[in-house]
Design a protein around this nucleic acid. Sequence first.
DNA 1: AGCACGCCGACT
DNA 2: GTCGGCGTGCTC
Length: 669
Amino acid sequence: MKVASLALPVPVFQEFSYFLPSPLDDTVRVGSIVEVEFHQRLLMGLVCALQVRNEENLKPILRIVPVSPWGEKQMDWAKRLSKIYFLPLGEIAQLFFPPCLPSQWKFLEQRVFTQDGESRWDIPSGGRNLFIFRETFRVSSRTWQKLLKEGLVRLERERTFPQESSFPEKRFFWWRILFTESRRQWCLEMIENAQRERRKILLVFPDFHSLDSFEAFIRKRCPLLRVIKYDSRLSAKKRLLAFRLVEEGEYDLILGTRLALFLPAFDLYYHVIFDPEEKGHFSDQIPRYSALRVLYEKLRIKGGELHVVGIVPPLGIAHFLREGEFEERDFPENNLPKRKTVKTITYESRKQRLVLAPPIREEIARVTAQGASVLLWVQKMGYASALGCGECGFYYMCPDCEVALRYHLDSKFLWCPRCGRKVEPADACPICRGTLWENWGEGLEKVHAEIQTIFPKHHTLRIDSEMFVEGQELLESKTPYIVVGTSAILREELLRRSALLVVVSLESWLYLSDFNAREEFYVKWGKALQLLGVDVALNTQVFVQGSKEAITRMGQFLKSWREFYSEGLEKRRVLGYPPFGYLLRIIGESRNKDACLLVLKSLQEELEKKGMTVIGPFPGSGFRKRGRWKEELGVCFPEQDLEAVFETVVSFLPYRRREGITWDIEVDA
DNA sequence: AGCACGCCGACT
DNA sequence: GTCGGCGTGCTC
């Protein structure tokens, strides 16, 4: 009996065996995608191994999914991603599977040919995939029947699918390109180049807005180019069409979001990713991954060129540039970043209860009076970081997460910034019955409210990450505006048209628990500094407001990236922290605290036996569901130990959920 | 994950 | 007396 070992998209570190029924046994090979029944449902799976043995009670493979089987390098790439992200191979493989549309598979399996002389449809002599044909020409079923009957078209079984190709060389580049118009110009040059070399390009964007505007530009400038756009907004059918067209090689350029990384583009040479630090390049749900890392791993295995385009290199790229793995490139730009003065200012005496120091208010008045706009950059959403009693010192805390609840004046509710729990504040203090409420810390709403009080006649705008900023709308409005917002305001259109940027509270960026917080702030800040005021005639200014202590640490953010990163990178090198090694957090969540600890302790022992440095177990930080406990273990290890750590961790936690414990593995690499 | 099975509260 | 909440267990 022929038996196949399958990687299935389930959160289990295990492969599953199915037998190959005789009609399939010589078509299925390692790398094929097949459909099977698994626990009362149908799943697609990747064939990882084939062998001949006798085993009872195996279910059969139902059919082959009509897509290209994976080659060796594709397999290596997926296996590598599975290792570095500590995810089951099946969950990685699922990213590469076509959208599930079994009703369409019968069309994917056939190819159309036209009789000589039939020119109504543009079908090459090699024929065309029937699914592509149906979707592009939308022939009604009646016409189709007629065509078949009259012998004007004929069908054949789809021939072998295209094979993967790879390139012997791999090159990595960092381009510092500030402005959209320069980036477009740069792309045109790259397209021209690629066309000459008969090579194909993938452009990866962090959000729909930049993707759409780029698409419009490219379609206008290069009308003959075969462009494929791919993102989550496409319907399943459109996605499958794009998938199949790419597989067939019927394209010159793919424009997409991170989902496009997983298209079966076997002949792709140029890979471009814009603004790699942007949130959109990271998947925040399982399987969690970073678009840049996925591309990097692909190139290491399959070769090609990777061009990273941004303004300030994030930590990982800075590391690669220092090590010489990435080459730094400059693109000549017509626009130049503007000279600007950066002023720091400490808070007014706390008695005044105003967020913005007087010099800042004066500057806002001066700038807006001259018709230019102002950006106020705030880190926290909501009104205040805490709400409490002015008499006894009580303040609201999340009963689950043990952090202060954030007060939203808009909705008159308290929200937990960790778990999203909603609490309605009482009229009087629940401890001392006092009615003198007090709030601490400045959020977006408070800053905006203050701006409205000080400048009642100005146009003001409040923007947080939830809202989509329509740049066009603002550009068309003639009046100056004052924008108060979170990092969502650091958009090119807004920055270029503003003459003043205010960092409202520097310490709120410095004291975040994330150990990359400083570096993340530097990248955002650097981008803002470069783009600010470019389209404004006025002198541009930046105000940074913060506590005395925070302001003394401001100097580092004015350094060049090489200087800024050098100290932090040296520290990380010594400790073996990312990007020099892997930092793993193994988090168990359970209603039984001891159950987690028991497993973590024995895992720790096992890892230590193998010579790894393990920290913990210690209580997990952050979000905790009602009545549940979190315990976590930290492991830091170099590249050469990845295999060993993976094997150990996986043997201890083969299931993401078992015996009342939910496991999560976070990887920083 | 997602689906079954099982064990307790509010309803025709 | 059943519908349906979710807490556990298992998947070739």
